[in-house]
């Protein structure tokens, strides 16, 4: 992915740039709002990571609003220390695709940015998700693996659907809470782990290979077994 990072804090920026490059992405960095807006408007990126409070008179929201008013639909993730519910609502209203508050874990940022990429492509109306021998039919709401029907609770179905839509990508616990349960707070307890492990019991356990993998210090990933 080609990613633009607009962030004025040198330490944070250096850390994010290094991490994204290690993950195999191409990263451009602007350390003020003016340059950030110029680069975002004149070049093509797969995703933009935007700090809200920036020097140079143009803050993150302004950049975002300008981009959206120019019909620029590049996926934007706001990365901000402003953590109140209203701040978040304001960011999403201005047209951001995701909102992550500082301080953050890099794994969380990486997972969310990579998820943006998928969202940006506009996959069209999908009726069936397939990963290796696992099939999820969105219309009949049936799940099969290797032709064998798997019975899932509605919530387990949505959890699996979310994982399959992000197949090959890391999905963090907070992403699952937001995406599957619409919870925007951290329940502190490992509720998500229990749900995933129950899903595993049904989807992975009876079969020879596991599809749902735990990614240490990050979350989960559903992917085909690497050859």
């Amino acid at each position: 992915m080609r990613i633009l990072l607009v962030e004025d804090d040198k330490d944070v920026a250096g850390f994010v740039v290094r991490g994204l490059k290690e993950a195999g992405h191409v990263v451009e960095h602007a350390d003020n709002g003016r340059d950030g807006l110029f680069m975002a408007a004149s070049e093509t990126f797969d995703a933009v990571i935007l700090d809200r409070m920036l020097p140079g008179g143009i803050d993150g929201l302004k950049i975002l609003e300008t981009l959206r008013s120019q019909k620029n639909a590049v996926p934007v993730l706001i990365l901000s220390a402003m953590a109140e519910v209203d701040d978040r609502v304001k960011g999403l209203k201005a047209g951001s695709d995701d909102y992550l508050t500082k301080p953050f874990a890099f794994a969380e940022l990486l997972a969310r940015v990579e998820a943006l990429n998928r969202r940006g492509k506009g996959e069209g109306p999908v009726t069936k998700l397939v990963v290796e021998d696992l099939e999820l039919d969105l219309l009949s709401r049936q799940v099969k693996r290797g032709g064998q029907k798997i019975d899932l609770q509605p919530r387990e179905f949505r959890l699996l659907e979310y994982l399959m839509r992000h197949a090959g990508q890391v999905v963090t616990r907070t992403m699952l809470l937001e995406g599957v349960w619409d919870y925007h707070f951290d329940p502190q307890t490992n509720v998500i782990d229990v749900h995933v492990s129950r899903l595993r019991q049904k989807v992975d356990k009876p079969f020879s290979t596991g599809l749902i993998h735990t990614v240490r210090n990050a979350g989960y990933m559903l992917r085909a077994e690497q050859p």
């Binding site: 349960w181 329940p187 490992n190 509720v191």
Partner: peptide
């Protein structure tokens, strides 16, 4: 129901 659903497995 959602809260019960979230904590049920736990």
């Amino acid at each position: 129901a959602e809260v019960a659903d979230l904590y049920g497995p736990l």
